[in-house]
Amino acid sequence: MSYVRQLIGMFLLVVAVCGAPFMLYTDKDEVHVSPENVIVRTVYLLEQIADGSLGTYWVGNTERSIAQDIGPFALSTFELLFFSVLIAVAVSLLFGLFLQRFGAVHQLQRALDVIATVPDFVLIMLAILAAIQFYKWTGIRIITLSPFSDADNNWFPLTILAIGPTIFLMKGVSLKYAQIGGEDYIRTALAKGMGIWHILVHHVYKNVKPFLVADLKKTIAITVANLFVVEYLLNVVGLTRFIFSKDGGFEFNAAVMGLMSIVLLSILVYVLIRAILYLFERAFVYK
């Protein structure tokens, strides 16, 4: 029951966020605050959902059905979101925890520290610039900006999207690693002559995991924020198209459906990553 309540809360939050432009606007030098507009639009949206359609939205001069487009859009967004978070978790566990004690990894982390000072959206723009330069020099195309192309190079947006969350999660994990490495039980374990891998898996990993899980939500939030920029700048056709259409208009129905699907997808990604971590533990930690 509490899940249903949370979902309804989420829906109301999304409606409130998407309705904000109708709630707060200016007309003839007067600021209007009119929450009733949002309620009217929400009722209309709910009526349409009850009818079995999700309403329509405009692309240029074409009116398209949301229900028809939401499936493929959600799929491509889900791919981007899920694999980016997966890469972030895998890389930060591997380099932030299991390989942390090697010198080369420290150099890698120092490099990442420098990159981390650059905001993610700037990194995304620089990556596009770099890809274009790379094409000019070598003639090898690693980037397609046309939205009509086949998604044969999905890996480029995916890699770019993975940078931000990886940096964030890696920072958290290696910070915890340094803290836990100084604990007395690690010293005891070392003094007893336990193997380094044993200590890493059974003492460090188990203690890092709660923080990893706590940071996972923030990681997903960062990925979603970057998703908007990646899909917008790289012309990836995905759910954010419902929210920020390039040719102007803002549509309430489409925005609500898009944002709600993104929220649901991020919950799904969270659950899937937790499941993968569980499998990893079954296979390597508690064999």
Binding site: Y25, K217, I220, A221, V263
Partner: peptide, 22 residues
């Protein structure tokens, strides 16, 4: 629950929608 719900939503979206109208 406020913290929880808020941690999922990137902050720039509510700020964008709130200020867009004005």
């Amino acid at each position: 629950s406020v913290e929880n719900a808020w941690s999922y939503l990137p902050l720039f979206i509510p700020v964008y929608f709130l200020l867009r109208g004005v």
